[in-house]
Amino acid sequence: MSLNTGSEPPILQIDKLRIGQGTKAPIVEQMSLEVRRGETVGLVGESGCGKSLTALSVMGLLAGNLKVVGGTIRLGGEEIQGLSQRKLRRLRGEKMGMIFQEPLTALNPVMTIGAQIAEMVRAHRDVSRKAAHERALELLRLVKIPDPEERLGEYPHQMSGGMRQRVVIAMAIACNPALLIADEPTTALDVTVQAQILELLASLQREENLGLLMITHDLDVVRLVADRIVVMYAGSVVEEGAVEAVLDNPRHPYTLGLISARPTGSFAAGAPRLADIRGSVPAPEDRPAGCVFRDRCPYAQEVCATTRPMLETGQGGHAVRCHFPVDRQTDAPKELAQ
């Protein structure tokens, strides 16, 4: 789906990102991922894995008590850490935009929709009030909000959650960014509205040739919209690759667990099933030594307790961080099959 040749640097390139909280254990570490222009990457993992923090650190919007303490974040090849606040602000909006999980609280309740969009346009483009207003109108049309002229004068509380999420999307793409980060954009919405928002995001991504980082814990969403998938567990990547490759042939036991925990079961008939993964994501300070997943892993061996596995890239860029990756074609452990 990518229109780019490999020569252009990825629009987003995170390498060995480490997010710390004072002297406490880092919350995110060894986090790497890439998003190319025209590509949708699904970032999945249970709640508390560090997906949102990864996204916020790209935007430079981490809460005051958190800090990027290691690794690199490149936007179109340019390292953004150490940039002045002023430069970073220009990048937010012009190079990257973000959509948040809670559309109901994401907009300023005392400003009209039109004012909030126009403000964004005027912050980045030297245009008149009228031109900004025109652009706002155009954007509302682009995100398919009915009666856009009237909506411009309305306040957020006069709109439904789905409509508000469309407004947030309109703001995020107002200045034609190359990268769009959507942090669980449909989690707070009704199922029917979810589908519409996903469709909108997918079509915008195609039309504007965006790099889209879609954060979700819903694997069906990933299958629907993403080209590649990055599976995150307890602060780092455990598996990544093309969507079909990873979902049809998961190699990390955690990915396998996520897939079989879906209410609709496995994607591919015959894929090994795993009983729901026991327990929950450990807090950063409670992560075990060695492999962070070993406490919950049915296949953990001695080496898993002592040595942290590396992210090993195999065929077709399918990478996995596991000493004993699952392979259903050859050696699916017997106890997997139910």
Binding site: M59, L61, R89, R90, L91, R92, G93, E94, G97, M98, F100, E102, T105, A106, L107, N108, P109, E119, M120, A123, H124, V168, M171, A172, A174, C175
Partner: peptide, 12 residues
């Protein structure tokens, strides 16, 4: 939340 959204827009 809306303050975070405002910051994400890149306004001062």
């Amino acid at each position: 939340d809306f303050v975070r959204t405002a910051r994400a827009k890149g306004i001062s």
